[in-house]
Computed example of a mutant assay.
Amino acid sequence: MVDATYQKIGPRIDARTAQRQRATDTGFRLVTLFFAVLVLAILGGVILSLIIGALPALQTFGVDFIFTEVWNPVTDKFGALAPIYGTLVTSVIAMVIGVPVSFGIAIFLTELCPPVLKRPLGIAIELLAGIPSIIYGIWGFFVLAPILQQTVQPFLINTFGQLPLIGKLFAGPPYGIGIFTAGLILAIMVLPFITSIMRDVFETVPPLLKESAYGLGATTWEVVFKVVLPYSRVGVVGGVMLGLGRALGETMAVTFVIGNAHRISNSILAPGTTISASIANEFTEAVGDLYTSSLIALGLVLFVITFIVLALAKIQLMRLQRKAGG
């Protein structure tokens, strides 16, 4: 009777096989643990290297390094305020332009797009992510900047520039290059990343929920904003934060079109600079330990900004998940 039972449930696992399986599981766990610890070690090494490299500049300038606009290698006076300002403003412009466009594209691909166009459009969006950033920069400098200088920027200056409150944001001559152009390039660059993630999370919404809403008489607009978006809001926020992280650290494309001017202007049409662009432009020409240390300190500031943004995003995602669970 017992043998018949074992024959039904399969062969008995002997002690040697069980021991080998336990050894395999242990080895697999140790290998994955090693890789996880390796990532933390690399991250810690990067942080430590940045701190050591930035220490001379931080000891010389102190907290004033963060709040000083002057950047003069001749007199060894360095401040990170202008690059920090440029990094944050260009990233905000990129998000203001890129997120609504990405949301619209993702909704069209998942809810409204004809089947014959869905795949070609999806591939086209994904191909944008594969274009090197330097190509975006060259295109922005030789093609987009002249177009903006001749058409878009004069329009902004003549319309929004005349308004009492926000007029200063669009004042000045149309340079073509500048903070606005850099933000527009960043918006184009982050668009495929945000769109792909939004499209994927929108496709995870159960069709039964949408069909039920349509059956109750809901319009497409109501289905999107009352069913699809609430169901997938955690993924949407994650996609937006991924795009923001991409915008904060972009280097070559921004370097081509931002103007690389170490100053803060009230107008977003004026030239400026970012942390990554400053490092890329000046690191090979840095003469003296203080100059090099100041550039490394800029890298440390960018690391801290990125860490804070990602930490806030993680906290927001946790809150959304907790609210959804409740």
Rank of each mutant, 00 (worst) to 15 (best):
T219A: 09
G27Q: 09
T17F: 01
A57Y: 05
G161L: 07
Q321D: 10
Q21H: 07
I47G: 09
E203I: 07
T255C: 10
F61I: 14
G299I: 07
L242D: 05
P207N: 10
F61N: 06
P271G: 04
M252L: 15
P11Y: 08
T90N: 01
Y231L: 03
L163H: 14
L248Q: 10
Y291C: 07
G27F: 00
G172H: 07
P230L: 00
F141P: 01
I197P: 04
L40S: 05
A324P: 15
N281Y: 07
A311Q: 07
P174N: 02
R199Y: 05
G140C: 07
W71M: 02
T68D: 05
G215I: 09
R322G: 09
I308G: 04
Q59V: 09
M198F: 00
T306D: 10
Q162C: 13
E222Q: 15
Q316Y: 12
T273Y: 03
G176S: 03
G45F: 13
P115T: 12
L242I: 06
W139P: 08
V240F: 01
A187D: 01
T284A: 02
E203D: 10
P115I: 14
A313K: 12
L81K: 09
L127E: 03
A54V: 06
I157L: 13
G44T: 08
L144F: 05
G238W: 00
R119Y: 15
I315A: 11
R22V: 14
I194A: 00
I66H: 04
L209G: 06
K168Y: 15
T251M: 11
V228C: 08
A54G: 09
G27A: 07
T110N: 01
Y6S: 12
D64V: 13
V101C: 05
T159D: 05
N266R: 08
L242G: 04
I305G: 04
M1D: 10
V116N: 09
P114K: 07
G243Q: 02
T195Q: 01
L165H: 03
Q149A: 03
L298P: 05
P192I: 00
A261H: 10
K8G: 03
F307A: 15
P73H: 06
F180W: 11
L55F: 13
L43V: 10
P114L: 10
L163S: 14
S102N: 08
E285G: 13
T306Y: 02
G44E: 11
G130K: 05
R199E: 02
S278T: 06
L317K: 14
V287E: 14
S293C: 07
F170W: 07
L163V: 10
G44V: 06
G215S: 15
T32P: 08
P207I: 08
F303Y: 09
T292S: 12
E222V: 12
Q316C: 13
G239S: 01
I258D: 05
D76S: 00
F283A: 06
Q162Y: 15
I147F: 15
A94K: 02
V46R: 01
R12E: 03
L88Q: 06
L33K: 06
F225V: 11
I125A: 02
R29Y: 10
P206L: 06
L112R: 11
A124H: 08
I84F: 07
A57Q: 11
M189W: 11
L216F: 15
T306F: 03
S267C: 06
L310A: 14
